[in-house]
């Protein structure tokens, strides 16, 4: 759904994005994470067609955003961290405006009322946007960006300034939109919340993609070919654990093996069937590895994020 190739973005004295390439599949929720100044917001603004890249190509559902920005924008909804509302308009007027601005034929304000109901602000339609609380303003802002039912939703720090209840509501909303088939990219520093709804994590550091993989944190139905992250824990340390684990001569590949310093635990990406997973375990035991645990890695996003960043920087 989102295909980025060789994306570069420069500020006068700094290259903010350097040869960034990745692909985001339809219907996924991707957590875009990275340290301050890593290039997350710049990347989101390039994806949303607000900033022209210095070089590279962005395709949204096959549409080149540089060639056809207007067509690409029909697919997009973008919620900026510092979004604005028309404070003097009512909630209904705001929604009617954005419906019309996106070219929606909306007799009887059906689209406006529908999106208001989805966001739980249907009882606020006559209130001025300027009189709403922070949480309700956030809901109105989201309603405005999804009123035209975009297929791609980009959100920059959407939970910023929200209370815990509103954050829980946001997570529910994101999962609901994903269930409707929307492809969502969320940039945030609050990794514990991203864990609730992200199916993938894209880590950016110093303008480069450090990691892009399934989070494995969410209970995804076991289907053939799905990508998970596996963790092997050994009963006793094994020297050269990375070499011992990869690559298996079983007719399928595994991702780069990342072992701890002791040689007692390792993680790697795996995209085979459950049967392949069983064969992999058999193979490791047959190799003489003292496997104490072999399972999907449910370590927190935060752990993975920090581990990946450290690995990338070393």
């Amino acid at each position: 759904m989102i295909d980025v190739q060789g994306l570069c973005f420069e500020y006068p004295a700094k290259r903010a994005l350097d040869e960034v390439s990745f692909r985001i599949e339809p219907g996924t929720v991707t957590a875009l994470v990275g340290p301050n100044g890593a290039g997350k917001t710049t990347l989101l603004r390039c994806l949303s067609t607000l900033e022209p890249p210095y070089a590279g190509r962005i395709r949204l559902d096959g549409i080149d955003v540089a060639e056809e920005p207007r067509r690409a924008r029909r697919l997009l909804g973008f919620l900026d961290e510092f979004f604005g509302l028309y404070d003097d308009l009512s909630v209904l007027q705001s929604l009617r405006y954005w419906a019309a601005a996106h070219g929606i034929d909306d007799p009887g304000d059906a689209a406006a009322r529908d999106v208001a109901a989805r966001l739980g602000i249907e009882d606020r339609l006559s209130e001025r946007a300027g009189s709403l609380s922070r949480g309700l303003r956030q809901r109105l802002a989201i309603a405005q960006v999804i009123i035209h039912r975009p297929r791609i939703l980009l959100m920059d720090e959407p939970a910023s300034g929200l209370d815990p209840e509103a954050r829980a509501g946001l997570a529910e909303l994101i999962l609901g939109l994903q269930a409707e088939g929307m492809t969502i990219v969320v940039s945030s520093h609050i990794l514990s919340e991203l864990e609730d709804y992200s199916s993938h994590m894209l880590i950016v550091d110093r303008g480069r993609i450090v990691d892009h993989a399934a989070t494995g944190a969410r209970a995804v139905p076991a289907v053939a070919g799905r990508q998970v992250r596996l963790r092997v824990v050994l009963a006793e340390p094994v020297a050269g654990l990375e070499d011992a684990l990869s690559p298996p001569p079983l007719g399928f590949e595994i991702g780069d093996v990342v072992a701890d310093g002791e040689g007692r635990m390792a993680r790697f990406e795996f995209a085979g069937t459950p049967r392949d997973q069983a064969r992999l375990l058999e193979h490791q035991i047959a190799q003489g590895l003292p496997v104490a645990s072999f399972a999907e890695d449910h370590s927190s996003l935060q752990d993975r994020y920090i581990e990946t960043l450290r690995k990338g920087r070393s």
Partner: peptide, 17 residues
């Protein structure tokens, strides 16, 4: 006012030509 009110980017992304 749109730029200061941070609604300008949304207008740029809208379907209004």
């Amino acid at each position: 006012a749109e730029v200061q009110g941070k609604t300008w980017d949304s207008q740029r992304l809208s379907g209004i030509g």
